[in-house]
Design a protein around this nucleic acid. Structure first.
Lengths: 253, 253
DNA sequence: CATTAGAAG
DNA sequence: CTTCAAATG
């Protein structure tokens, strides 16, 4: 099964551009979306596309953040939120369980200018660890797809040196990625393409950055150790337009 | 001399549409603008078009209200505001004197849903009377061009009955127009076209109202009595696009 | 329905 | 540079 993840930067924006994920992502069986920037009642025509099951978890504040999981099969269970109000009011985490496989999408907080929100982000990361562990304790295999808002290593962004003090590449964020992978979760894309430079999933809108491929890899699909053997492919899709992010995907056998 | 008045609904908006007033209004010698929605420092390229003298009076709040007068001849005097802070912070009145002729532009307040701001508007009107009288006391002839935000009589809007409780056609507003003309100021366009229906200067953006000419005449060029004999023409220009209002003009011999 | 500003990314 | 919301018309 092919699972996609895409930060669409506004589902209504991609709709207007005729780039709806379920219409343009080939072979998708599950689609995780971040930054849909809408509450379900604002987008009645988009919540349940023909042939899909839609699960939506949105921020309290209209037009902010929000995530969704669309799947061809109806999930056995859908769980919105991390179970902690500080984060759940921002609509950042959503899980859909299919048997013992749980597909989790996350839109990690941006740590912001001067790291103004770094503490919030790291607290989110800490709670996420426990949350994932709880799924695993229940006997589930976990795949976590989304916008982590972190470039892990120098190879994961075009201008590492220049960005050492910028949100998304702060030492504290990168250290959390180390920690997370240290827990056994696997960044399969990077494992299979250890030296591949220029593999990015986000580009600023300014100055033709995408055209010139001045980007960052901040969207990931990571899996729990017990899932690695099932991974047939892990890819990024930089030609898919419609957002400032591109989709990533993982194929499970 | 031909004097135009146009509520442009954002000078930056008409610029983007290549509808800049000084580029498209034929034979203009003076142009009064309302709802420019910009402070001069936000639009350095627009404040002093080649071949024109620009005078701008803007609201304190960025992007709100604001008026301007562009003229081929340099005014002998430019006076921003009504001399009353309650109104002048909203950038609604501007005068340019050429000899003893004073061209005044005004963007009257909208009385808003349920007449929420009717009192403010009528206070504005009251102060305006005194302001105009002061110019006349100095020996000036007065022409007042702008968006009065009032349809005076049933003939001045397509749906009078339906709008009797709506901003722009409230009894209090219409009564002020009666009063104002009772002071001797002359609505030359209507005097010369007493029965002309369908002569509107504003149409809502909804539902093809302009296409169907479901509009209101709320923009006027009125003159003090001593100027009537110099009026060669008074017109509206409903084919000029770029705003939800169209320009009006008056020609003085 | 349209413009602008402001928050956020 | 882009999205969305809110205010205002």
């Amino acid at each position: 099964m092919r699972i996609y993840s895409w930060n669409v930067n506004g589902i209504r924006s991609v709709a207007k551009k005729d780039c709806l994920p379920w219409a343009i992502l080939p072979g998708a069986e599950v689609i995780c979306l971040q930054e849909t920037k809408a509450q379900p009642q604002q987008i009645p025509d988009l919540t349940d596309p023909e042939g899909w099951h839609g699960a939506w978890h949105s921020a309290k504040k209209p037009g902010y953040s929000s995530v969704a999981i669309l799947s061809r099969d109806k999930p056995d269970e859908v769980v919105p939120g991390l179970g902690h109000d500080d984060f759940d009011v921002e609509g950042r985490v959503l899980a859909a369980r299919f048997g013992t496989l749980v597909v989790i999408t996350a839109y990690f907080p941006n740590s912001q200018e001067l790291g103004k929100r770094l503490d919030y982000k790291l607290a989110f990361c800490a709670h996420l660890e426990g949350y994932l562990a709880a799924w695993r304790a229940k006997g589930c295999q976990v795949v976590l797809l989304g916008d982590y808002n972190i470039a892990h290593r120098p190879i994961d962004l075009a201008r590492p040196k220049e960005n050492e003090k910028n949100a998304g590449y702060l030492p504290g964020e990168r250290a959390w990625m180390d920690r997370y992978l240290g827990l056994g979760y696997r960044d399969v894309f990077r494992e299979r393409n250890p030296e591949l430079a220029g593999a990015y999933t986000w580009w600023t809108n300014w100055g033709g950055a995408r055209q010139r491929n001045i980007g960052w890899r901040i969207d990931y699909a990571t899996v729990s150790p017990d899932l690695v053997s099932r991974v047939q492919d892990a890819a990024i899709h930089p030609m898919v337009m419609g957002s400032d992010h591109c989709p990533v995907s993982i194929d499970l056998g």
